[in-house]
Amino acid sequence: MALPALWMAAIVYACELTILSIGFTLTYLTAKIPNFAYGTMSGIGIYSVYMASRIFKVSPYYGFPVGTLLGGVFSVLVYLLIVKVLASMGGGAIVLTIATLAIQIFLQAALYIYAYWVRSIWKLYTIGFLLKTRDFVFLETPGILYVSLITSILVIVGLHYMLNKTKIGIAMRATTESIELASILGINTDRIQLYSWFITGCLAGLAGSMVPMWFMSSPLTASGMQTSVMAGSLIGGFTNMYGAIIGGFSIGFLEIILTYYLQMIFGAWVGEYRPIIPMAVLVIILLVEPQGLQGLYHRFMATKTGEGILKSLGRGE
C-alpha cells in the first residue's frame, strides 16, 4: 500500500510550506515586514539534520529538535541585533525589509561556508545531499510522511491553542493589532515580539529539518522556497494565520502535482519552469484580490448569502 513517490513528495512539501507560511505570516503580523530571510532560515534545520545523520551517525530525527532550537535562537538574534535596533532608529518598512534581504544574503553565504568547512574536515558531500535512506520505514511507507503530517497538524493545533487560550497568545494577538494600545494595557510588547520571533524561527528550523528527508538539499534549496512561502502566505492574505495554512498547503501541492501533470501533457521541458508557478500565483493574486482569501471571505460575508450563513451560525448581528 505504499504511496506513489509523487504524492509522497507533494504531501511532504506541502507540509513544509504550510509550516513556513504560518511562520512567515506570524512575522508579518508582528513586525509588519516581509521577512525575506525566512526561507533561508530553514537552511539551519537542513544542516542540523545533516550533522546528526552524517557526522554523529544517529537517526536524522535527533536533528529535528536541535534545528528547531537553533532556528529560534538565530531568529531571536536577528530581532535583537538588527530589527529592534533599526526600528528604534526610526527605520520604516522598506529599510527593515532591505535589512532582512541583507540577512538572507549573509545567512546563505554562511551556510555555504559552513558546508565547505564540513567538507574540508570530514571529507563528505555537503552540497546536494539526500537522507532518504536513513529514514525509518513503517507499513512500507517512509517515516517522513507520518512525521511531516503529524508535525504540521501539531503545529497548527498548538498555535491555535496558544493564540486563543493562553495569556501570551492573547497578548501576542493584541500586539499585532496595535503595539501602542497593547502597551497601554500593560503588555510588555518588547518581550512579546521576542517570543514571536523565537516561535517563527523555531518553525523555520522545523520545516527545514524535514527537507533533506525527501528532497535533494543544498543551501540554495532553503532560499529557493522563499517565493513559494510568500505566495502561500499571500493566498491567505499576509495577515491571517488560518489563510496561510490553506495557502501554504495548496501552493506546495500545486507546485509538485501541477508540474507533474503539465510535464505529462506538454513534455519534460515544463519542469524547468516550476519556479514560475508560485510567481504566477503571486502575480495573479495581487492582480485579482490583493487581500487573498481573507479579502474573499470579507467580500462573501458582505453579501446576502454570507449574512444568512453567519446568522445560522449564530454570529450575525
Partner: peptide, 13 residues
C-alpha cells in the same frame, strides 16, 4: 556574499 550582507547591515545600523 558574506561581505555584502555584513556591509549592508553595518552601514544601515
Amino acid at each position: 556574499r558574506l561581505l555584502l550582507g555584513i556591509l549592508l547591515l553595518i552601514v544601515m545600523i
